[in-house]
Design a protein around this nucleic acid. Structure first.
Length: 225
DNA sequence: TCATTAAATTGTT
DNA sequence: AACAATTTAATGA
């Protein structure tokens, strides 16, 4: 079983047929990135479908005036970039490692083979894309709720989403500055929101991150106000 | 192992 | 955006 250990961190491997699983294992490689380094710059090609094995990355862009914003954080077990793979296009966003990160990669030829031959793989893709769609629609809604604490709470909840980031666990190493970029609030606002959530017992603040104590309550936070 | 320094992060204004 | 306080990381004695 030369590839068995290489693939045991891929959370959706059990959903592949035997032949697809072998093909996937043969096409799977991994690469390590130091905190702060780019996995891919906006506009570049990255001919791999990628998943976070350990660490944390963000999908982000910077406006012409230099302002930064983050679209999504992806933690352990999260796979992303299928859109660019399906269309064979350059990446539309920067992919940046926020912490030391190991990325699992499936090359384009293997990805295509899987989409054309494996029903299980297509189910995985549809499930992931459906969840991400839900995430971004919910984020638009969040922007109009206009409660910074709720926005921060729900963005934390998305990080804990079992479909998008199944292996992320309860300890999230994400600075308040990065969380502010993700939630679209100032760092000071994120700081206040995090303190409020800590006081309510939903998270526990720590240096350079926090622990999630009540993911479900975070996911429905705005409904309670 | 300890002390010093630099860098990162947080809390506040 | 700026500031102070705190924690961590790195360095070298």
């Amino acid at each position: 079983m030369p590839h068995a250990d290489d693939a045991h961190d891929v959370p959706w491997i059990a959903q592949l047929e035997d032949a697809a699983r072998e093909r996937m294992r043969a096409g799977l490689t991994r690469k390590a990135y130091a905190a702060g380094s780019f996995v891919c710059h906006k506009g570049d090609r990255l001919p791999y479908w990628t998943g976070v094995e350990s660490g944390l990355i963000k999908l982000a862009a910077s406006a012409a005036d230099g302002r930064a914003l983050s679209f999504a954080g992806v933690g352990a077990g999260g796979w992303f970039g299928e859109g660019s793979m399906l269309k064979d296009e350059p990446r539309k966003y920067d992919i940046v490692a926020l912490r030391d990160t190991t990325i699992g990669r499936i090359d384009l030829a293997t990805f295509r083979w899987l989409t054309e031959h494996s029903l299980g793989f297509n189910r995985v893709l549809v499930r992931l894309m459906n969840e991400r769609m839900a995430q971004f629609i919910a984020t638009i809604e969040l922007d109009r709720i206009f409660d910074p604490t709720a926005r921060v709470a729900r963005h934390i909840a998305w990080l804990c989403n079992p479909v998008l980031n199944p292996r992320i666990g309860t300890v999230i190493d994400l600075s308040q500055e990065e969380l502010a970029l993700l939630a679209g609030v100032s760092r000071a606002t994120a700081n206040k929101a995090l303190q409020a959530l800590d006081a309510e017992g939903l998270i526990r603040l720590s240096r350079a991150g926090f622990s999630v104590l009540a993911a479900k309550k975070l996911a429905t936070y705005a409904d309670r106000n």
